[in-house]
Write a protein that binds this DNA or RNA. Structure first.
Lengths: 187, 187
DNA sequence: GCTCAAAAGCTAATGCCATTAGCCTCGGTT
DNA sequence: AACCGAGGCTAATGGCATTAGCTTTTGAGC
């Protein structure tokens, strides 16, 4: 019966992500989201508790997007092939959404709202390392090292931190190889 | 003749760094700096062009601090000893000033004001790798890999991104060893 | 010591943004 | 047919950056 299209939290977050893609995280403002969704700023509070909470929702979405993509990427692969695919998928995501990556929470596990999403992302990495026969804490360390590599590179690249873009593919390949070699040595 | 202590750009940046150490980068506000230096907000414009420029100065200071410390750290060392010392000094700096580290510009080379400071920091890393016999672009790649490792870890640790602080020293030692092994393989 | 110009500070005003309070309206429920 | 709650709106508040224009101080030169 043709209900007038109404705003929902999901649509608000959609608009927020568009804004971030276009203008970066600093561009995420309730006023801008309101303008984009065709609503007065205070109306957003019916869907979101505050700007801080909206940022939280955005963080969850980014984590979920990444988890989804990496899960599909790694499905059916194992060992070095899986790790390689995961690392390349990580970089590909960040290149596709450089601004959005900056909205990924660094500490999802310390936020009620983001905890579940953060855990799932880590678990994808952990699962990808299954098969290397890593015992308990060794698996944790290996996952951490992996995170350090992919996040370190992604963070610098998306921030324009490498002077010249020249040879970045090579640098990344070397990082992948370094990690795989390292895994072999630990096993 | 006892000149009444006047504000200078340097003192403004000092206050900005204190503020950042206490409240994080979001806490850096001209109003807060003014309060801390005992001056009305608009007066700051006599020493700094804008909040953005102040952030730029802060970034330079952080880069310079790091460069100084790392330079002293690796002086007189070479090879694995030097790399190890540099990596540990990097982490130590970030642990000492976790909030401040977030004020380090990711792309100093693209900012007129920060370019020189950024270059010097990179050069310390590059120089530390001297002696591994890396030819031209191999040295660039090796420096990039080093940056990825130290920044990746520092960024996650200072952001509270590792679920538990447990075993972080071990994780870092493993990263150091991984990098040294990698360097050996490349040489 | 005196004058004066520039440096460094101040107040007032503007505009943007987040947030809160309180009102209005529609659509579905009873 | 009356009602009620969700979702929107306007108005108001307070923080912050920034600009304009005025005042005071200081130090240089006489």
């Amino acid at each position: 019966m043709a209900v007038r299209p109404r705003l929902t939290t999901v649509k608000v977050v959609d608009a927020a992500l568009e804004l971030i893609d276009e203008q970066g995280v600093e561009g995420l403002t309730l006023a801008a989201v309101a303008a984009r969704t065709g609503v007065a700023t205070p109306s957003l509070y019916k869907h979101v508790a505050s700007l801080a909470e909206l940022r939280g929702h955005v963080g969850v979405r980014v984590l979920e997007e990444m988890t989804d993509r990496f899960t599909h990427t790694v499905l059916g692969l194992a060992g070095d092939k899986a790790v390689e695919a995961l690392m390349h998928a990580y970089r590909a995501y960040v290149r596709q959404h450089p601004k959005r990556y900056a909205a990924m929470p660094m500490d999802p596990l310390h936020d009620e709202l983001q905890q579940a999403a953060g855990m799932k992302l880590i678990e994808v990495m952990l699962a990808t390392l299954r098969g290397y026969g890593l015992e308990g804490s060794a698996a944790v360390h290996a996952t951490r090292r992996l995170r350090v590599l992919v996040h370190g590179f992604a963070s610098i690249e998306s921030g324009g931190g490498f002077g010249l873009p020249e040879g970045l593919d090579d640098t990344y390949d070397q990082l992948v190889r370094m990690y795989l070699t390292d895994l072999r040595g630990q096993s």
